[in-house]
Computed example of a mutant assay.
Amino acid sequence: MEDFFDSEAYSKIDFTKIKIKKGEYDNCTFSNCNFENVHASNIQFVECEFIHCNFSNAVVKDTAFKDVRFINCKMIGVKFNEVNQFLLQINFIDCQLNFSSFYQLKLSDTKFKNCNLEETDFTETRLINAVFDNCNLQGAIFDQTDLEKSDFRTASNFNINPQQNRLKNAKFSRNTIDGLLLNHKIIIE
């Protein structure tokens, strides 16, 4: 039988030294915890918050994130494409997500606010109605990505080819429209 943890707060725990217990965490808060390189596979997080945590290179294979918020977390190189996709719902505020992968995930309505998403892979990801609020997308990969109704008005440094991605009703600002034209070798002054 799996362990069940409800409405618990975890603070300053180094999970590289203390193994995280497998099970279901409901409405729990993790603050200033270290998950770097930790195998956090086959765990369920439901309505949880992670604040000031380090998830860099954590293994999240078959891990469930259902209505989970990451706030001010370092999450470099995380392969989110390996998570359990059933009821997947995640949002990111002030996070470092460089070199992470969201390959082929269904992430409609996901919000990225003040995030660094350099070299992040969004290939074949479904990001309908997603928001990239004040996010750096330098080198992020958008290929066969569904960005319908997504908001890039305050995003920067993105390169999205309109011929290789779905952009119906996506929002861009006049200041960032050049990110749609880079592949066409057009000079914008």
Rank of each mutant, 00 (worst) to 15 (best):
S100D: 06
F80H: 12
G77M: 10
Q85A: 12
K111G: 05
E82R: 12
D94T: 05
S108C: 01
N116E: 01
D121V: 15
C115N: 00
E118Q: 12
L117Y: 09
Q104K: 15
D121I: 15
F99Y: 13
S100G: 08
K111S: 04
E124F: 08
K113D: 03
I90E: 02
T110M: 02
F99H: 14
L87C: 01
N116A: 05
D109I: 06
Q104N: 13
F80G: 09
Q104I: 04
I93E: 02
R126V: 10
N84D: 09
G77A: 11
K79H: 06
N116I: 05
N81G: 03
S101P: 11
N84F: 07
S100T: 13
Y103L: 15
F86L: 00
Q96W: 04
T125F: 12
Q85K: 13
K111R: 08
F122I: 13
F86H: 05
L117I: 12
S100L: 10
F92K: 02
F92S: 02
S101N: 10
V83K: 10
Q104V: 05
D94Q: 02
Q89M: 05
N116P: 01
I93A: 03
L97V: 08
F80C: 06
K113P: 07
R126W: 06
T123I: 12
F92V: 03
F92Q: 01
C115T: 04
F99S: 14
N84A: 10
E118R: 09
N98D: 13
G77V: 11
R126G: 09
G77E: 15
L107R: 08
K113M: 06
C95W: 00
F86C: 03
N81E: 12
K79V: 08
I90Q: 05
Q104E: 13
N98K: 11
N98F: 07
V83D: 07
D109K: 06
F122H: 09
F122P: 12
Y103G: 13
K79L: 09
E118Y: 05
I90Y: 00
D94C: 06
I76C: 14
K113Q: 02
Y103W: 13
F92Y: 08
N81Q: 10
L107F: 01
I93S: 07
N98I: 04
K111E: 05
Y103K: 15
D121H: 14
F80E: 07
Q96I: 00
L88I: 02
C115V: 02
L117W: 03
K113V: 07
L105C: 08
C115L: 03
E119Q: 14
F122N: 11
T120D: 04
F86Q: 01
L117E: 08
L117S: 01
Q104F: 04
K106G: 05
L88E: 02
S100E: 11
K79S: 10
N116K: 08
T110Q: 00
I90A: 07
N114T: 00
T123W: 10
